[in-house]
Amino acid sequence: MIQNINATRMELLRLKKRLQLAVRGHKLLKDKRDELMRMLLEIIDEVKELRLLVEKEFRSILEKFVLAKARIGPYQVEQELLMPSKKISVMAGQKNMMSVRVPQFKREVSGDIIPFGYLNTSGDIDIALDRFDKFIEKLLILAEKEKAVQLMATEIEETRRRVNALEYKLIPNLQETIKFITVKLDENERSTTVRLMKVKDIVRSH
C-alpha cells in the first residue's frame, strides 16, 4: 500500500486512473516481451549455426593461408600483400525491431582481392584469398545478427523487469490503496449517517 495517502475522493479518482494506465502498460509490455522473445528464439539457431560455420571455414582458410605462407616465405607474402587493391566498406543502417534498433550492414567493395602477379606466389594463396573474399560476406551477416541477439537480449531483460515491477509491485500496491480509500470513505459515510440519526433522536426527545 502507498503510505501517506489522503483518503479523499480526489485521491481515489487519481489512483483509479493510475491503475488503469498501469494495467494497460503492463499488457503492452508483456506483449512486447513475448514478441521479442519469439524473435530472439527464431534467430538464435540461425546465429549459432552461422557462427559454427564461420569458425570452421575461417580455420580452414587460415590453414591454407599459413601453409602457402610457409611455402613461399613470410617476407615474400608480406611484400605481395603490402598494397591491397581491394577496398571494402559498409553502409550501416538501422532496423527497428519492436523498438530495438539493430544495425544492418551492406557491403561496398571495389577492386580485386589478389593484388599481386602470379609469378612469385603459389596457387594456394590465391585460393585462400579467393575463399576469404566470399567468406567476408558471411562475417558481415554474422556481425549484424550477433549484434541483434545482444541488443535484443538486453531489451528483453529490461522489459521483463518492467513487466515484473508492474505486475508484482505497482499494480497490487495501487489496488490495495484504492481498497483502503474506498473502505475509509464508506466508513465515514456510515458514521455520518449514524451521527445524523443520533442527533435527530436527541432533537426529537426534547
Binding site: 582458410i61 587460415l62 593461408f65 599459413v66 605462407k69 607474402v77 608480406e78 600483400l81 591491397p84 581491394k86 577496398k87 571494402i88 566498406s89 559498409v90 553502409m91 550501416a92 543502417g93 550492414f105 551492406k106 567493395v109 577492386g111 582481392i113 589478389i114 593484388p115 585462400a128 584469398l129 576469404f132 573474399d133 567476408i136
Partner: peptide
C-alpha cells in the same frame, strides 16, 4: 544509411589476410 568502416584487430599473421580483403 551512413558509411561505416571495418577494422580488424589481432595477431599479425591473421591480419595479413584481412588486409588483402581491404579491411
Amino acid at each position: 544509411m551512413e558509411k561505416g568502416k571495418i577494422a580488424a584487430f589481432g595477431e599479425k599473421d591473421i591480419m595479413l589476410i584481412f588486409k588483402s580483403a581491404g579491411v
